[in-house]
Design a protein around this nucleic acid. Structure first.
Lengths: 117, 117
DNA sequence: GACATTACTTACATTTCTTATAGTACCGCA
DNA sequence: TGCGGTACTATAAGAAATGTAAGTAATGTC
């Protein structure tokens, strides 16, 4: 999760596919190690940074920050900062984010059904 | 797409999440640059290796092979080899693979709806 | 004044994913 | 004998994602 090289073949391929296939577009947004789990939790209501950290025991703060920023940039989550000390920041899904519910539900259903191998 | 290091934190995190969250499990299977598009095409019927290659103009043969093998290992696609020369190999979705249809449909729907940004 | 708390940031290391390039076996056909 | 077509494999290198470790600001409490 560093800056992407916009001249790479990889980048070109990714954007081309994303442009042509809406399903790939969506997959790219909720892809990444943690984005999907974060959305799953947020579907149940808003959460603070520290609460998310507790729910995802192995995530590093760096990763949590990066993923949240990415989701925010894609208008999937909304970030609200309260000017307090110590700071308090709350994250919640936007309407667009909530729209992911059926997507996540289907992913979940398929997973439950076929996880056994 | 090389051998994964089973001692890495990354690997541990991924498998743990995959185990706990069926939605992540599913996402990991159809994740990767090309797996989802391949499935999308195969939803419409069986295809040969060379046909897939034509449909995905920028994929390298290596990537196509790797992804197909992975999908095969996960029982999502079935591979049929015809003992001819030149060789002919056909790929089609298994019933489990076809079960992905609603998942892909939802991904697609969300993408179409929100692609505009 | 030292310390704790929260939500980060920064620099760097490691792992994983993707691309590039070349090569293989098979056989029929010219 | 050499060429073409198919579906690969091998090796290397490049890019991207993830992890590790440390540090920061602000302020209220001890």
């Amino acid at each position: 999760m560093s800056k992407i090289k916009e001249t790479s073949t990889n980048f070109a391929n990714k954007t081309a596919l994303s442009d042509e296939c809406p399903e790939v577009y969506t997959a790219n947004l909720i892809g990444g190690q943690w984005a999907l789990v974060i959305c799953s939790w947020l579907l149940q209501g808003k959460l603070r940074f520290s609460e998310l950290k507790k729910l995802l025991p192995n995530i590093t703060e760096r990763m949590l920050t990066l993923q949240l920023r990415r989701l925010e940039a894609n208008h999937i989550v909304k970030r609200t900062v309260y000017a307090e000390v110590p700071p308090r920041v709350e994250y919640e899904l936007t309407p667009i984010g909530y729209d992911l519910k059926p997507v996540i539900k289907e992913l979940e259903k398929w997973g439950e059904k076929h996880k056994n191998l």
